[in-house]
């Protein structure tokens, strides 16, 4: 199957606490991950979020780390996006170097030495056969 110039789309539902990884899109130029975040009662006004600039993807298909290239809807540390209540929600996307076009397990790594607040999500299965194709 020729996957060049195709964009593959996976619907996933991987969580880390109140962070949800919802969708992965991959083409020969970039890898995009879509996230949803729901605030909780833990912080008085929902707290804040940001993403470390050194965030990357690791994949079972390569020894390379796929660095974060861009982000949409979220700021990079040390900036912060502050919520206004414990009922707020937020959608954002992260863009990384393109993953290999093959079956693999990927992990999102915000910190190599994470605490409970870091956006680290592991072992997300991406199978070529299970992917949708983007229509241009």
């Amino acid at each position: 199957m020729n996957l060049e110039d195709k964009t593959l789309v996976w619907h996933v539902n991987a969580n880390r606490l109140n962070l949800q990884l919802l969708r992965v899109m991959l083409n020969e130029r970039t890898t995009r991950l879509d996230f949803g975040y729901q605030t909780t009662d833990y912080y008085i006004r929902g707290g804040w979020i940001n993403i470390y600039p050194e965030t990357h993807l690791v994949t079972s298909a390569s020894s390379r780390k796929m660095r974060m290239q861009d982000q949409q809807g979220i700021v990079t540390a040390p900036d912060k996006f502050h919520f206004k209540s414990r009922a707020d929600w937020h959608f954002f996307s992260l863009f990384f170097a393109p993953l290999p076009m093959q079956d693999q397990l990927i992990s999102l790594v915000e910190s190599e030495d994470p605490d409970f607040t870091n956006f680290n999500i592991g072992n997300i299965e991406l199978k070529i056969e299970a992917a949708f194709r983007l229509r241009l």
Binding site: H11, V12, N13, Q20, L22, R23, G36, Q38, W89, F91
Partner: peptide, 15 residues
Amino acid sequence: LSFIHYSYKNERFKS
């Protein structure tokens, strides 16, 4: 279409 939906009631996202 593929999209992400946020449920106001359940306070959860879904693809």
